Computed example of a mutant assay.
Amino acid sequence: MAYIPAMNMSNFDLNLLRVFDMLLREQNVSRAAERLALTQPTVSNALARLRDQLGDPLLVRVGRRMCPTPRALALEGPIRAALRQIEQTLATADTFEPQHSHRQLRIALTDFVEQLCMPPLLARLQTLAPHLRIDVVHLTPNLPVEALDRGDLDMVLGRFNEVPARFTRQLWRRETLRVAVRHGHPQIANGLDLHNFLQLRHLWVHGGQTRGMVDQWLAEQNLQRQIVYTTPNYLQAAHLVAATDLCVVLPTQLARQFAGLLPLDLHELPFALEPFELDLVYLSHRQHDPALAWLAEQIHAITAQ
């Protein structure tokens, strides 16, 4: 086992941690220096000091890249989280003024939730916080706990089965499902019942899941629908269904939006499913960040409109 020297914090330059974080992000000294607004020799010197004080190479050259060692990977998350916590603590010392703030907040969403949330939210922010920047990234089916812990994400908005206790979970809205087909679909001239539903050719918006609510219910009844096309994209799904004899099950609010734009008819599911919940989730200690708390209030406010 390699010897790791004891750390004497009284002699440790905490500025090195910012360099370490950026080197791990970029895995390139020149790019790290550029993002830190430092010279390349300054960053190289900082890396040498980090290696000496931590007793590990931290980054080793492999081709044109500098790859992190296991020791560096183990330190990456805790150091990034600590830096984020310091930034948030310092930020909370100031009064958050939405009208003048240039904060950047990063949110993970599915394209369905983005379509529901962002148009009214951006209209609201244009007036209340015109300089606030929102960066949206794609949300996978599982809660991205590591990205939230590291501070790479500020909050997420979606449907989650389990949320660890260290996170705050706030109900945003409840949603139901509708079946969408093109106008004049030949198999639904007399309405939609379970028999017709099972005879239809289905498009499934999977969102990275292995089984959705509809297929879970059907499996419990020893039934199965005919899925002939899958896509991760709700917008593409609606256009495909409007142009074919496929059908798709969509969240009700989204289905109504698409029906106002495309030649689609909407039908209730021919069986009962409980509404599903969409939650706003962020680390509990972030509730003291006034910018994040304010944005959460705005997201809840557009639901009430």
Results as ranks from 00 to 15, higher is better:
Ile134Leu: 14
Pro164Lys: 10
Gln88Asp: 14
Thr140Lys: 13
Val179Trp: 01
Pro130His: 04
Thr168Leu: 14
Asp111Phe: 03
Leu153Tyr: 02
Asp149Phe: 07
Thr168Phe: 06
Thr92Asp: 03
Ile134Lys: 05
His131Gln: 14
Phe112His: 11
Arg173Met: 02
Thr89Phe: 02
Arg178Pro: 02
Leu121Ala: 05
Val181Thr: 15
Thr140Asn: 12
Thr95Tyr: 04
Leu90Cys: 02
Val145Pro: 00
Leu116Tyr: 08
Pro120His: 12
Ala108Arg: 00
Asp149Ile: 08
Met155Cys: 04
Leu148Glu: 05
Arg133Asn: 09
Ala91Ile: 03
Val136Arg: 09
Trp172Ala: 12
Glu87Ala: 15
Asp154Gln: 08
Pro141Gly: 05
Trp172Val: 15
Glu175Tyr: 06
Glu146Gly: 07
Thr95Leu: 11
Asp154Ser: 07
Asn161Ile: 00
Leu139Tyr: 10
Gln104Pro: 00
Phe167Glu: 00
Leu121Tyr: 04
Val179Ile: 14
Phe160Asp: 00
Gly151Val: 00
Leu90Arg: 13
Arg166Ser: 03
His100Thr: 13
Met118Val: 14
Asp149Cys: 09
Thr127Glu: 10
Pro119Met: 08
Cys117Ala: 15
Gln88Phe: 06
His131Ser: 14
Val156Lys: 02
Arg106Cys: 11
Thr110Cys: 12
Pro120Val: 13
Arg169Asn: 11
Trp172Gln: 14
His138Gln: 11
Phe96Met: 13
Val145Asn: 01
Arg150Ser: 07
Ile107Tyr: 01
Ala93Leu: 14
Arg182Thr: 15
His131Val: 09
Val181Ser: 14
Trp172Ile: 14
Thr176Val: 07
Gly158Met: 00
Leu143Gln: 01
Pro98Cys: 05
Asp135Cys: 03
Gln104Met: 06
Met155Gln: 02
Leu171Thr: 06
Phe167Tyr: 06
Leu90Ser: 06
Gln99Arg: 15
Thr89Arg: 09
Gln99Cys: 10
His100Asn: 09
Gln88Val: 09
Gln104Ser: 07
Thr95Arg: 12
Asp135Val: 07
Gly158Leu: 02
Pro141Lys: 05
Asn161Glu: 03
Val156Ala: 09
Asp94Glu: 05
Leu125Gly: 09
Val181Ile: 14
Leu177Thr: 05
Leu148Met: 10
Arg133Ile: 07
Ser101Gln: 05
Gly151Gln: 01
Ala165Tyr: 05
Ala165Asn: 03
Gln126His: 08
Leu171Ser: 09
Leu122Trp: 13
Phe167Gln: 00
Arg178Leu: 15
Arg133Thr: 12
Arg150His: 02
Ala129Tyr: 01
Cys117Gln: 14
Phe112Asn: 12
Gln115Ser: 15
Ala91His: 10
Glu162Gly: 04
Gln99Thr: 13
Pro130Ser: 04
